[in-house]
């Protein structure tokens, strides 16, 4: 069984050492997914697998047989932008742009988790529904490093879009 990447079937690599990240970047030339540390410490390689955010650098591609992978390239068609992508521009939620695809994919996965009711480290009460306060968003996005310091803009962009949808 192949892997589905942005809806297209992709053959598994012959070498089981190939990470999902390297399959995307080197095998498929989908270089929107970024390699920042290759050791699970920065979040730049975040992609969505069946809607869940994961780190593609720590994922061996062979483990994802039959799964559906969505990368930054799969979030929008042609020249169009996902509302969160547009919000990142509007709020200046990036500078160099290198961590940005990972931040965006992570935020989409984050919103799905919150919708499902997954609590976080800063949730005062584990038994109640999730309210995506600024602090909650910050904690939930802490797996995505940004060295340029666009943190405020990133959180603002998420608040205005995917987090706002959840509150509505």
């Amino acid at each position: 069984m192949p892997i589905l990447v942005n809806g297209s079937a992709v053959a598994l690599p012959n070498d089981p050492r190939v990470s999902l990240l390297d399959l995307l970047r080197e095998g498929l030339h989908l270089s929107g997914t970024k390699k920042g540390c290759n050791q699970g410490a920065c979040g730049a390689c975040t992609v969505l697998v069946d809607g869940e955010r994961i780190l593609s650098c720590l994922a061996l591609a062979v483990q994802y047989e039959g799964r559906s992978v969505t990368t930054i390239e799969g979030l929008s068609d042609g020249d169009g932008l996902h509302p969160l992508q547009q919000a990142f521009i509007d709020h200046d939620g990036f500078q160099c742009g290198y961590c940005t695809p990972g931040q965006i994919c992570s935020a989409i996965g984050m919103a799905a988790e919150a919708k499902r009711g997954v609590p976080s480290h800063v949730s005062a009460d584990l038994s109640t529904d999730v309210r995506l306060t600024r602090e909650e968003l910050q904690e939930r996005m802490s797996g995505n490093l940004c060295r340029c310091g666009a943190h405020n803009g990133i959180i603002d962009a998420i608040r205005d879009t995917v987090a706002a949808e959840l509150a509505a």
Binding site: G40, G43, T46, E52, R53, I54, L55, L58, S106, G109, M110, E113, P119, S120, H121, S123, R140, S142, G143, N144
Partner: peptide, 10 residues
């Protein structure tokens, strides 16, 4: 929830 990041916990 105090460990790692959401991506890693997933």
């Amino acid at each position: 929830l105090a460990g790692a990041s959401a991506q890693i916990r997933n």
